[in-house]
């Protein structure tokens, strides 16, 4: 837990929550169901950040079209996160490069940063959610 504990207006504790996204969409349900946690979690007014590392970067690839696999395209929801005050989205520079992607491939505004900085961010969190 961080040393200076923050509280909200009603004196409730505000924790630093990080959602770690490491899974590609569609092949398994983890990406979709973890996004559902982020949306529900937004109502709790915590200090939230999301990181996209490893195959998680594929979750926010532009131009997803699931019509021919019969599944719901949930990628537009990442663009709606801002309305839920989930604004800190961080993407691993190395994970993008390994997969032949650049920031232009992504459908939402993110901060691309080296793994060393993501590691620092992880270290600063109170709780890390993984799915």
């Amino acid at each position: 837990m961080s040393e200076e504990e923050r509280t909200d207006d009603e004196g409730g504790v505000i924790k630093k929550f990080m959602y770690v996204n490491r899974r590609a969409p569609y092949g398994t349900v983890y990406a979709l169901e973890s996004l559902e946690v982020v949306l529900i979690g937004a109502a709790f007014d915590q200090d939230v950040s999301m990181v996209f590392i490893d195959d998680g970067v594929f979750e926010i690839k532009k131009g997803q079209d699931t019509a021919e696999i019969g599944m719901k395209n949930f990628s537009p929801t990442y663009r709606a996160l801002e309305m839920y005050d989930v604004e800190k989205l961080y993407v691993s520079q190395e994970s993008l490069a390994e997969r032949g992607l650049t920031e232009d491939d992504l459908l939402v505004d993110v901060e691309v940063m080296p793994d060393s900085r993501i590691a620092d961010l992880m270290d600063e969190q109170d709780v890390i959610f993984t799915f």
């Binding site: 490893d54 590691a119 270290d123």
Partner: peptide, 12 residues
């Protein structure tokens, strides 16, 4: 799987 490699990349 690559989870050990990922872990070691981010573990301080």
């Amino acid at each position: 799987k690559s989870s050990l490699d990922s872990c070691l990349r981010y573990a301080k």
